[in-house]
Design a protein around this nucleic acid. Structure first.
Lengths: 213, 213, 213, 213
DNA sequence: CATGAATGAGATTTCATTCAT
DNA sequence: AATGAATGAAATCTCATTCAT
């Protein structure tokens, strides 16, 4: 997708810049529609309308509906992973809790800025799309595993530092993700809450210290 | 499942029993198909085939596809709530942690016995079905709120007993449900784990005491 | 259908009388439903419900939906023809205008008492039912021809008596029936008018003398 | 049919002309099928086949089956009303009988050229379509009232000119329409007759002067 | 590249008819 | 005879995808 090198300053033709714009518009529209209508009820016509293009145009950039979804996953997950990796790099050498906090802020922050994307991921996690969107579903699994691996990495550091109970080690990152998902659902589905990143410290407290007194 | 006692003198007419049987077969088939294929990709023809009846028969018992889904939710949630209420009654007067444990065992136990149902609920929680299955979706919301209220009730007891940190009180039951959901996803979606109820003590430990050392 | 002679006083078994009642109830219900919903939209279930019987019962008396419609036509047209023939017999030997008046009163009177039946006939005349109800349609055509022949017979008398213009002879009975149909449509479809028979003299005046001054 | 003048400088784009053609083909096919099979037995598949397009194409131009019927009514009634209004304009200032004759010729002439349309209207008048085609039925009623109002207008002139018997005034236009309908039924349903317009003078004679000697 | 009408496979739903009780 | 659940053919409508302009 990204055929131009980073060094190439601004030699793009107008046409090419326009193409870039069209693709971005299409992806943004797809994000809205897949999130709002649901993966199955997201119709190409609606996406085209919201992107301000004709249906045919969608097919000039993406082979089919699934490729559009996969392309969207590709783009958004790449951005999120970049944010998370930046947070990990910036906190390299710091203790477990601090690094975990940095990672959570990166992830929850990205989610706060991309609610629609989160809704799509939630559907993908729990819906049954292996058969209906095999390619996009595979892409999402891969990306989610990468996300998970970032959390695992920090969790391993925590175990080494004896900051995580070893008997819960295998469940720890699942619980963490589950608690984050709970915040998302509380907010996105139930409409409670004022943002995800704002809860990072209460989340950390509950995750590491429990809700018990 | 076995609602009639053996002593019951006048069993229903053959007609009525037959009718009951058909409905149960249809609900069971619907449960499988909605879970395996996904809410939107569950086709009436497939449900009929698995139930061993003709398509038309589905419509003799349920007005349309959505009514079938709603009927299924009604039946299963009623069973689950009955189990949870029995656990609450049986543990009445016991301390917070014990009651919470009883409640979790009831819920996770039901889930262990009804994996397909759980998959449907997961989809309903995170998918976008307000517009496509408005009635079934409403029913599910109602039932989920009832489930939630059971957890909240115990949580309130925990706060009263000073067994729950007050500053986390508003998030506690969300986190608990999120951690349970994490176990489900680990098992159902990723295929890890040997049952949900078996993890109840590690879940409780992490929830109340945190994963931190 | 009428297997018993008129002389047979009351030797019918209860069962047979009950059967008679059921058939009459079914015919009456069919009359309502075919008239109200339209020939195509008349559903067997609705007919059964209005007759107070089960669907299966309909099929114990009539081979299929079309046979039910044909049976209804048979019964009602027979009654109507009997009325018309009685009028013709009673007015035998009287002059044209008087006989025509008697015939019209018989026909319009029957219609006044059987509005639903008239609505079915109207549909049958102008709808396209040769293919969908071939048998019932054939029966109706036959009966209508019989009706027409009564009118023609009187019209021939009128020509003989030089009471009808010979150059309009071939159209006269069509116009007459068209004017009667106009009264029916005005009343049944548009809801204007207080009965058909009441207009018999204005109809005769217009038919024989024209509306011109 | 030919709405664009030859002088018109910018004819529509090919796209637009093509679109127009498709709609006309669909309407023509619908006219045939609704007339031949009957309003309820007219199937979308048959209409598509006769129009030489795919089923889906029908739905690109008409929301559903009823909208197709309504669209057809709209188009044909507009043409017929245009013919009738032209006749009224051309005969403005002429005496009653002459104007009535002009109006009848316009109407019967249009009918002669659009037999299929007439069959549909006959069904609509006498069938029970309020519930099954509410929108199309409403449109037809509206249009028929407009037709009726043309006849009434001339009839009022006839009364003013003392050319119509006042005691029959309220029934006159119903009878006239009934007599026209009789001609149509004679021809369309029974297959007698050589055209409607050819009978206009005998119709007028019978309507104004009666069939009596 | 953009357009949008045409395509047609496929899904839901209806309802006349059957038949075991 | 009466019942009414089961049947399945058939119809309407949807919408992803194609392709001529």
């Amino acid at each position: 997708m990204n055929r131009r090198s980073l060094a190439e300053p601004q030699p793009q033709s107008l046409r090419e810049r326009f193409r870039e714009t069209t693709v971005q518009a299409v992806l943004a529209a797809a994000e809205e529609v897949f999130a709002d209508a649901g993966l199955h009820a997201a119709h190409m016509g609606e996406i085209a309308t919201r992107a301000g293009v004709a249906v045919g145009t969608l097919y000039n950039h993406f082979a089919d509906r699934e490729a559009l979804l996969a392309g969207l996953m590709e783009a958004r997950f790449a951005e999120m992973l970049a944010d998370m990796d930046a947070a990990l790099r910036a906190s390299a050498g710091r203790p477990f809790r601090e690094r975990l906090r940095a990672l959570l802020i990166a992830k929850l922050g990205y989610w706060d800025r991309h609610r629609k994307f989160v809704q799509i991921v939630l559907q993908g996690e729990t819906g049954r799309y292996q058969q209906t969107f095999p390619h996009a579903w595979g892409k999402m699994k891969t990306k989610m595993r990468e996300i998970h691996s970032r959390a695992e990495k920090v969790m391993v550091q925590g175990i080494k530092e004896k900051a995580v109970r070893p008997e819960l080690a295998d469940l720890a990152s699942f619980f963490l993700i589950g608690m984050m998902r709970a915040l998302v659902i509380r907010e996105v589905v139930l409409g409670i809450g004022e943002g995800l990143a704002i809860e990072v410290d209460r989340l950390l407290a509950a995750f590491l210290g429990g809700v018990g007194a």
